[in-house]
């Protein structure tokens, strides 16, 4: 971790591990998936792993991951963990949250 803090947040060959929590096929969830995919394809082409989890299917994760608001995107790596909620329609904020701006 100490090493990481000296490094810039955005590293070229770092893989983005993203987890998106959604609730079935609700409008918010659908929008979030579409918006996020678009952002990732534009900015992180081939540099990301996106895992989409339906909380309805796995309710136990909600407690483990401290989920309150949905849809929720958790960026595990690189850098510190970030949480983004909402349908990802605000592109600037998403980019800022991912450390891409």
């Amino acid at each position: 971790m100490i090493e990481q803090s000296h490094m810039p947040e955005y590293i070229e060959d770092e893989i983005y591990r993203l987890r998106l929590f959604v609730t079935g096929a609700s409008p918010n969830s659908t929008r979030a998936i579409l918006n996020l995919k678009e952002i990732c394809d534009n900015f992180l082409k081939d540099k990301y792993e996106l895992e989409i989890i339906d909380i309805y299917q796995q309710p136990l994760i909600a407690q483990a991951e401290q989920i309150v608001a949905l849809p929720l995107l958790i960026k595990k790596t690189p850098g510190i963990e970030r949480r983004l909620i909402g349908d990802m329609s605000n592109r600037d904020k998403v980019l800022k949250g991912l450390g891409l701006s």
Binding site: T23, N28, Y56, P59, Q63, I85, G86, N90, K93, G97
Partner: peptide
């Protein structure tokens, strides 16, 4: 400080947690 709001959301996560509990 850990959360960035990027658009429309709801508290379904809370509902699911509570419902499951």
């Amino acid at each position: 400080s850990e959360i960035e709001e990027t658009g429309e959301y709801n508290l379904e996560g809370l509902f699911i947690r509570l419902g499951y509990a």
